[in-house]
Nucleic acid binder design. Structure first.
Length: 105
DNA sequence: AGGTTGACAAAGG
DNA sequence: GCCTTTGCCAACC
């Protein structure tokens, strides 16, 4: 493991993600605005989390309401299943209706 | 130190 | 609505 999860910026991002309850979601852009950084940095912070993390990383999706694809990993499929288990529903195109599920901080 | 690299977003065609 | 730029910035080496 060589990825950083302990910078102050990353910790602020994780703290926010932890505030999202099961059955709700947030977006990279929303988190980015709250900690005054860019969406790409939020994605980078989440990528650094270990598998056994207690941070509900699966509740972070993109601005289109879809699960973002990372390189070679099968995490996207896991993310989908975890969200379904939490009661989040996807439409025919595989998108979540942000109007219904978006977290309001 | 400076170029490379992303789990993005918004705007344009 | 899809695909292509374009802006972004922290971490990494």
């Amino acid at each position: 493991m060589g990825l950083t999860t302990a910078t102050p910026l990353y910790q602020r991002i994780y703290t926010l993600v932890q505030q999202v309850p099961p059955g709700r979601v947030t977006t990279y852009g929303q988190l980015a605005r709250l900690v005054a950084t860019t969406p790409r940095v939020v994605g980078f912070a989440l990528a650094a989390l270990p598998e056994n993390s207690d941070i509900p990383w699966q509740r972070v999706i993109n601005a289109k309401g879809r699960i973002s694809q990372r390189g070679q990993s099968d995490r996207a499929e896991l993310q989908y299943q975890l969200l379904i288990n939490e009661g989040v529903s996807f439409d025919e195109t595989g998108a979540i209706k942000l109007a219904d599920y978006l977290m309001h901080f």
